[in-house]
Design a protein around this nucleic acid. Structure first.
Lengths: 143, 143
DNA sequence: ATCCGTTTTGCAAATGGTTTGCACTAAGAT
DNA sequence: ATCTTAGTGCAAACCATTTGCAAAACGGAT
């Protein structure tokens, strides 16, 4: 029994074809994917898949800690497999997203937790700026 | 001429009653405020204020770098006066938001910029977890 | 102060990502 | 194989945010 299946069962959730398919799709995605795109891909394998099932599965998978929703400053949320200590840089020019490792250690987190009397369960660090190409474009035209 | 007024003019934007009022409201807010709430407050002073004006002003003020939109994991965005180096901790229990100073220095930022060949213009760090009260509640009941 | 061109506003309607109600289907325990 | 209950599919609802358009009002020039 794979990890995801176990986690679902342990929380009393059922392991359905749809959930497995949706999780697979997110798994096979390098980086992040939007709900609509998951839906599009899922439909290719399971034509009766509905968009609400995608959203509902996403909620469950998030709550179970298998999947993470991220705000990339777009109009929609994006989802990805929950991993430790990785964050995003979003280019304000082209929207490209670069991932990078968490640059600070546990000491910092526990210091913050202590200083603010807060139990920290999640860290979201998003940098925005400009990638090399967009930097060049910015320098080029004068607007 | 105050800073905000100058910044607006410099970018060819007009300094309207509405924009000034909206900026004032955000300014007077400790922490963050949602568009709907700005609207509610603005209407008290200027009853014909419309919600779309709030949203449009917010866009302008954001683009001019006076105001910042933050995603607190809610269903709506929140806005606050743009300041340097301050971040948020959101309690998953009660939604309370604690602010804290940016815990990493310029060296780290420039290292990240260099390593990823990325010009960093913005940093958003949001921690989530549990405040003391909600931690107690969690320990208390067994769900 | 007034006039004018252009930006903003107010209002109402549209948008669009996400959620929900409900009858039907299918996990998974017995 | 049966039964109970959670999950699905579909269509409709939600609701924060955006948009079209005519009227209002900035602000530069007169």
């Amino acid at each position: 029994m794979i990890k995801a299946e176990k986690m679902l069962r342990q929380s009393g959730k059922r392991v359905t074809r749809q959930r497995v398919l949706i999780l697979d799709i997110i798994n096979q995605t390098k980086g992040h994917i939007a709900a609509e795109e998951i839906y599009r891909l899922a439909k290719q394998k399971s034509p009766r898949m509905s968009l609400s099932t995608v959203y509902r599965a996403l909620q469950v998978l998030k709550k179970e800690g298998l999947v993470e929703g991220i705000d990339l400053g777009n109009d929609r949320y994006h989802y990805e497999i929950k991993r430790q200590d990785h964050h995003h840089m979003v280019c304000r020019g082209c929207g490209k997203v670069i991932e990078f490792q968490c640059p600070f250690g546990k000491e910092l987190m526990s210091r913050l937790a202590e200083e603010n009397d807060f139990e920290i369960t999640g860290v979201s660090l998003t940098l925005s700026g400009y990638c090399p190409e967009c930097r060049r474009k910015k320098a080029g035209n004068s607007n």
